[in-house]
């Protein structure tokens, strides 16, 4: 058992036993060596099930939405990327600050389980692209810290117990490539772009996994499940899928925290982050560089009226 897992269990036991929190969301070792899925516990003795390794990739923050109208205080573990989701939910007033206890963990970079060839044979796996491009390996917000994690609201180097491992594995080594895919698609002709996206949208199953995992997708009622006819259609045709994809991207515009979970959970490997990144790139160009979900008191560029806002269209 690794040190972080040990500290996790100790803290969880303490928090649940003292009654400081009513529930706790973390990760547990799954049925296979490359699975470390989310775990929800309410009793101190369940803390033994907690586990942390390079497969604890799930961003747990979206799960807090299940408790947004409750009275219970919930604790959850966050890696750097996940922690921006907490800021998202707080800024969107979906959770109350006093109803959540954020525990920051250091991150060694998450492995890409799509590279698994033999489920019975543990091997060293490459890092997820999002970890190679990672700029926020340390939590941006936390009430407690374990594993030597440090809070940092700015892009930073990996800190804590796993710092050297993260560096060795190449966490953040491809930060500069963050917009590479956007640039590649932008370089296509209009017809090529259309063909590219049409091919992607044809694959979409409308399973809504991307929406469900997303901390920015926190509407009470998703428009794609409403009975409003007209604007949106539930059928999984290429046209309607394209409409869904663009609507989703614009829905999280200025609010996407770049955790990359939408793309990771997509069963059809649709490059969802390319669309999110395109929007982020445009916002940066129009309103100046900013990273959503890194500053709790920061103003969102698209959520602010200024008299000197550009008005080219008027």
């Amino acid at each position: 058992m690794n040190q972080i897992t040990k500290e996790m269990r100790d803290l969880a036991r303490e928090l649940l036993a003292s009654g400081e929190v009513k529930g706790l969301i973390g990760w547990t070792k799954g049925s296979r060596w490359y699975l470390t899925p989310p775990l929800f516990i309410t009793r101190p003795e369940e803390a033994e099930q907690l586990y942390f390794d390079q497969f604890a990739v799930n961003n747990l923050t979206g799960l807090l939405l299940d408790y947004r109208y409750g009275d219970d205080k919930i604790a959850l573990f966050v890696k750097g990327c996940d922690s921006r989701g907490i800021v998202r939910l707080l800024q969107d007033h979906q959770i109350k600050r006093e109803k959540v206890l954020v525990i920051g963990v250091p991150c060694m970079g998450m492995s890409d389980k799509k590279a698994v060839t033999d489920p019975r044979q543990p091997v060293e796996l490459p890092l997820l692209d999002k970890c190679l491009e990672c700029r926020y390996p340390n939590p941006v917000i936390a009430d407690r810290l374990i594993g030597g994690a440090l809070v940092s609201g700015e892009p930073s180097e990996p800190k804590g117990l796993t710092a050297s491992e993260a560096a060795k594995r190449g966490v953040g080594s491809k930060q500069a490539d963050r917009f590479a895919q956007v640039k590649a698609i932008e370089a296509m002709s209009a017809d090529e772009k259309y063909a590219f996206w049409q091919a992607q949208h044809e694959k979409c199953l409308r399973c809504y996994a991307c929406r469900n995992i997303c901390p920015a997708c926190n509407c009470r009622e998703c428009i794609f499940e409403s009975d409003k006819k007209g604007w949106v259609n539930k059928s999984a045709t290429p046209t309607d899928n394209a409409f869904f994809a663009v609507t989703r991207a614009m829905h999280v515009a200025g609010r996407c925290v770049e955790c990359g979970e939408c793309e990771r959970v997509c069963p059809m490997d649709i490059p969802i982050m390319a669309l999110n990144r395109k929007v982020i790139q445009d916002i940066n160009e129009l309103f100046g560089e900013s990273d959503a979900g890194t500053d709790l008191d920061g103003k969102m560029p698209l959520g602010l009226f200024k008299n000197d806002d550009p008005e080219e269209f008027m």
Binding site: D92, H93, N218, C219, M300, L302, L304, F305
Partner: peptide, 12 residues
Amino acid sequence: AICSGCGLCQSI
């Protein structure tokens, strides 16, 4: 019924 109370409208 739909409003999630995020307050974006208020700031804008």
